[in-house]
């Protein structure tokens, strides 16, 4: 009987090395590991069916395709961890890609162009953040609104035009398609940003406060956490990364029309949730989110290689999302039960 087992460490009077924490850790690490495992299976099966899948070009394509999604997923996970959501990122990517392209095509300097792109993204983020944190409008509604506003703005500016790759400075296109030592720049940028944000969230007091807010907003307020400032910061980051994503989108594709990343916000949210960031906030990591982005992109490529009807790609993404959420729920119940069995002995 486990009730009896539990008496030994309790009686010792010294806090035992918590088994409970280890369980929780394992569960969440298990999430990241299970994505890696799913990736391995997917790649294995696809490569067996078509050896081209693992050719240098095939891998490079997957990495390039993942990078922008991963970047957006990093920003999105910070927002989701605070129990909010940012649906405007797809529109922001489109707007920034077009405006930056317009600026560079008319002879603007590249560093300034990148800066403008990121600044536009950050500005959109600030608008979202102010509306959500200070006016206390639900994030879903606010960012749905800004999604359409930014989209409209993009169409207004574009006015049916398109940016052509030939008009862009070659250095810009190089940024999107070349690399160092065979590794393209895009995934490098995504990885660096992921590591930086991941480290910040884990190791800095202000980083932990994002989790605190998502876990219990009221408790965070009582603990003196500057809730509104942090939420604003989360949106600022998400917006700025969407801006950077827009610049990289331009660099990667060269030719862009208005609202070129339409619908991406949902892919980003899917990647984040598949990657183990709880949509209810407080749980998850940017590493998981990036792995989620990698998994979704790889599935897309694999289905193409396996000549599956593209229709199935969305269905698979959807199924994966449902699976991820179901697994989360089952795990949460398991953990809760384990914790309960432990804690029933504490009240002495």
């Amino acid at each position: 009987m486990s009730v009896v087992d539990g008496k030994a460490p309790q009686a010792a009077g010294v806090p035992e090395r918590s088994g409970a924490r280890t369980i929780v850790d394992t569960v969440f690490r298990a999430r990241e590991l299970s994505i890696v495992a799913a990736l391995a299976v997917l790649i294995g099966v696809t490569a067996a069916a078509n050896s081209n899948f693992l050719s240098g070009q095939g891998v490079t394509d997957i990495l390039l395709n993942t990078s922008i999604l991963a970047l957006l997923a990093v920003g999105q996970s910070v927002v989701v961890i605070t129990r909010n959501i940012d649906l405007s990122v797809g529109s922001v990517v489109g707007l920034v890609a077009f405006v930056t392209g317009d600026f560079l095509a008319s002879g603007g300097s590249m560093p300034l162009g990148i800066l403008i792109g990121v600044a536009i993204g950050a500005a959109c983020g600030v608008v979202n953040g102010l509306l959500v944190s200070f006016l206390r409008v639900p994030a879903l509604v606010v960012t749905l609104g800004t999604l359409y506003v930014v989209q409209g703005l993009d169409h207004y500016i574009a006015h049916g035009r398109q940016i052509n790759a030939v008009d862009l400075p070659p250095a810009m296109l190089a940024l999107g398609n070349e690399g160092v030592l065979g590794v393209p720049y895009l995934p490098l940028i995504a990885v660096v940003i992921m590591l930086a944000v991941g480290y910040y969230l884990r190791s800095y007091p202000s980083g932990r406060e994002f989790y605190a807010i998502g876990s219990s907003p009221e408790a965070a307020r009582l603990a003196g956490v500057p809730v509104r400032r942090r939420i604003l910061a989360a949106y600022l980051l998400s917006g700025a990364l969407a801006g950077l994503g827009g610049v990289l989108w331009l660099a990667r594709f060269g030719t862009v029309i208005a609202d070129s990343a339409q619908g991406w916000e949902l892919t980003v949210v899917s990647a984040v949730v598949v990657g183990g960031v709880a949509i209810t906030g407080g749980v998850g990591s940017v590493y998981g989110a990036v792995l989620g982005a990698l998994l979704l992109t790889t599935i897309g490529s694999a289905l193409v290689v396996l000549r599956v009807n593209p229709f199935w790609q969305q269905a698979v993404t959807g199924a994966l999302l449902l699976l991820a959420i179901s697994v989360d729920r089952v795990l949460a119940l398991r953990v809760a039960r384990l914790l309960r069995k432990r804690n029933v002995r504490h009240g002495s």
Binding site: P9, Q10, G13, P15, E16, R17, S18, A20, R21, T22, V24, V335, A336, L339, R340, R342, N343, V344, H346, G347, S348
Partner: peptide
């Protein structure tokens, strides 16, 4: 007798 690394979820009200 609580462990510092234990998550707060699942603690009894007394804990």
């Amino acid at each position: 007798g609580l462990a510092p690394d234990q998550p707060a979820r699942g603690l009894s009200i007394a804990d």
